[in-house]
Each structure stands twice: as structure tokens, then as C-alpha cells.
């Protein structure tokens, strides 16, 4: 049976983490489910755990300079209802799970799960979010795409806790978000697609596209995005087929119990087309 801890303060949590390597459990919406066991028995955690949802120091969200800071213990429902959060992120959170689960789950928990199908994570990639990691001896931050290295894999060290998600403020001309879930509510996603387009003087000033559940990690390509900078409508129209093809090469979904690789690929490309139409609309 795994040992479990309930730290009373953040400092204690950091210390327990350093001394025991206990895995932090915030909302439990993933870990309590993944390691569930029959009624009346304890969850089957393979490592020591600590329950951190009671730590007030880890909750809250606020603006700091050009960033929105969402502390790691902040529940999804709080993010969903906060007016200082980017509307696309709010929408993505609103479409996650169900109200009761959003009252428990956290964005940081979602990131630490490193599921390529995490819907909000897809939006965080597009927004260029960074994560803040804290241990007793240091604090570091890094872009989310450096943090997540594969399905369920991150670079979180054994003595570190994720303490915040930092999201640069972003204002775009238009945004695109689609989650395709297994049903209309309380659904895991088959795929998701987030796009932002910023146009100044009829040229693309910024374009971002992040694709969820079509590879081991969320797909975003700085290279392809930067090629679009400065394009006007005609240029973009001419370039579009090639761009689509290059994105298509990066879309490598799998078959699983929720959908098929074929469906995921085809639908993702259809959504990319819809985003491209939005870009054209913004450029004209």
C-alpha cells in the first residue's frame, strides 16, 4: 500500500516532495481514476502520494505584467469563470468533462498528465504558455512544449512541484477552437484544434495552430507558422495547399477505443481548412 501525505503548507509539500518523491494529487480527476480499485479498497497508487488540494498558497490566478499567472492548484471551474482568462482557454475548459469534475480538476494536473488529448493543453500550446516548477532549492520555468516530452512523460524532476502556468497575454484578430469529443458533454476528446490569427495592414502578423490527439504530443510548428508571417491574401492562397500538406505530414494519429486514425487525420485536416478559411476572411 502506498504511503500518503497531507501537507499543511506549501513549504511542507516541497519538503515531502524532496524527501519522499511523493506524487502530488490535486483534484484527483485523473490519478484517483487511473489507480482506482474496487469499492471499499484503497486506490492502488504505485508510489507515495500527497494530497495538495487544501493548500491555499497554491490557488488563485492574476495578471502579472504581460502574463496571466494561474497557480497550480486553481480549479478548472475558477478558470472557466474568470474574466481575465483568454476566452478560447475559457471555452476549452468549459468543454472539458462536467461541472463536478471541473470543480476538482486543475490545469496543472492536466499538463502533468501529459495526455496528447488534453484539450486545454492544446490551447496552452497555441498561447505559448510556460510552466513554473519549484523545488526547495530552485525555481525554473519553461515552455509547455519543452515540459511535455511524450504521452504521460514530462521533465518534472523528483523534487519539483509545478507551481503555476504562465500564459502570455495574447490578442488576436480571430480565433478558432474545435474539440471533437466522444459525445456532446462529459467527453474525452478524439481530437482538438486551436488556431489564432493576427492581421495587421492586411498581412499576417502572427499565426498559430495547435492540434491535439494527432500524435504523441500536441502538434505545433513554429517553422510552418513563421513562414506565414507577412503574407497577404493572394500569397496565403497560393501557399495554402503546400502548407496544408506540410501540416498533414505532421498529423500522425492512432487508432484507439475512442476513434480511428483515419477519422482523426481527415477531420483534423478539415478543421485546418476551416481555420485557413478564417485566415483568408481576416486577410480580405
Amino acid at each position: 500500500m502506498a504511503v500518503s501525505y497531507v501537507p499543511a503548507t506549501f513549504e511542507e509539500a516541497v519538503r515531502i516532495r524532496r524527501e519522499t518523491g511523493a506524487v502530488p494529487v490535486a483534484g484527483g480527476t485523473d490519478l484517483m481514476v487511473r489507480y482506482r480499485s474496487p469499492a471499499g479498497t484503497l486506490p492502488d497508487f504505485p508510489w507515495p502520494v500527497m494530497f495538495i488540494s487544501g493548500l491555499k498558497e497554491m490557488k488563485g490566478l492574476f495578471l502579472e505584467g504581460v502574463e496571466l499567472v494561474i497557480k497550480a492548484g486553481t480549479e478548472l471551474a475558477v478558470i472557466e469563470h474568470s474574466e481575465i482568462v483568454h476566452p478560447v482557454l475559457r471555452e476549452a475548459v468549459r468543454q472539458m468533462a462536467a461541472p463536478a469534475l471541473r470543480n476538482l480538476g486543475t490545469l496543472s494536473g492536466n499538463i502533468c498528465n501529459a495526455s496528447p488529448a488534453g484539450d486545454a493543453v492544446c490551447v496552452l500550446y497555441a498561447l505559448g504558455a510556460e510552466v513554473e516548477l519549484t523545488s526547495s532549492s530552485r525555481m525554473r520555468r519553461m515552455p509547455i512544449e519543452h515540459f511535455i516530452t511524450g504521452p504521460g512523460r514530462t521533465v518534472l524532476k523528483g523534487d519539483e512541484l509545478m507551481t503555476a502556468v504562465r500564459i502570455p497575454l495574447h490578442s488576436e484578430s480571430a480565433s478558432f477552437y474545435r474539440k471533437v469529443g466522444t459525445r456532446k458533454a462529459n467527453a474525452l476528446s478524439k481530437l482538438s484544434c486551436t488556431g489564432f490569427i493576427t492581421v495587421t495592414e492586411n498581412r499576417i502578423a502572427d499565426m498559430r495552430l495547435a492540434l491535439g490527439a494527432v500524435g504523441p504530443v500536441v502538434v505545433r510548428s513554429a517553422e510552418l507558422e513563421s513562414q506565414c508571417i507577412g503574407m497577404d491574401l493572394n500569397h496565403f492562397r497560393n501557399y495554402k495547399p503546400d502548407l496544408r500538406k506540410q501540416f498533414a505530414e505532421r498529423v500522425k494519429p492512432i487508432d484507439d477505443q475512442r476513434s480511428t486514425a483515419e477519422y482523426r487525420k481527415e477531420t483534423t485536416l478539415n478543421l485546418i481548412d476551416e481555420f485557413f478559411m478564417l485566415i483568408e476572411k481576416e486577410l480580405s
Partner: peptide
């Protein structure tokens, strides 16, 4: 037992939660 059906719904600090995925460690003081 996996937070999907809501039959175990309770209020925790006034908010709806699925009690099947709430560890007692999160209930201290609630």
C-alpha cells in the same frame, strides 16, 4: 467509481463534486 456518472455527487465547500474520486486527504477542513 471513476467520476463519470455523478451518482456519488456531494457538495464540497458548496461545490458539486464526485465523491468517488475525492481522497480523504482533500477533505481535511472541508
Amino acid at each position: 467509481g471513476e467520476g463519470e456518472c455523478g451518482a456519488c455527487s456531494v457538495l464540497k465547500d458548496g461545490k458539486l463534486v464526485n465523491s468517488c474520486i475525492v481522497p480523504m486527504g482533500s477533505v481535511q477542513g472541508a
